[in-house]
């Protein structure tokens, strides 16, 4: 007789679901730069944005006020709607 266990997880993922593979380039993608709220994140992202713009990309920006808390739902919704690729800045 088989055994039955109960799933302890949040069941947000299929057991077999795997993350998407990283894109090989950004040229045809909508790019979002995400400031997670660490000190000097903005400085890093400003530098990164300038580099992307010089290459012809026009990234959008999103931010949350502190790295210590999760992003507000509207910020998440905005990124889901407006971006194919999100680049997050983790820096001090």
């Amino acid at each position: 007789m088989n055994q039955i266990l109960y799933d302890p997880t949040g069941e947000t993922n299929s057991v077999f679901r795997k993350p998407q593979s990283l894109p090989t380039n950004l040229w045809d993608k909508k790019v979002m730069l995400f400031d997670i709220g660490k000190p000097r994140s903005k400085e890093f992202l400003d530098y990164f944005e300038e580099n992307l713009r010089q290459k012809g990309l026009v990234p959008k920006r999103a931010a949350k006020p502190t790295n210590a808390k999760t992003a507000a739902q509207e910020v998440i919704d905005f990124m889901v709607k407006e971006a194919d690729v999100v680049i997050g800045a983790l820096s001090d």
């Binding site: 088989n2 055994q3 266990l5 997880t9 069941e11």
Partner: peptide
Amino acid sequence: SRTIEIGEFDDPIEQAFERGW
């Protein structure tokens, strides 16, 4: 909660490790 059926002779402790629990 979602139920997970494992075989009669499977070790449920090892199954939990494999599932990342």
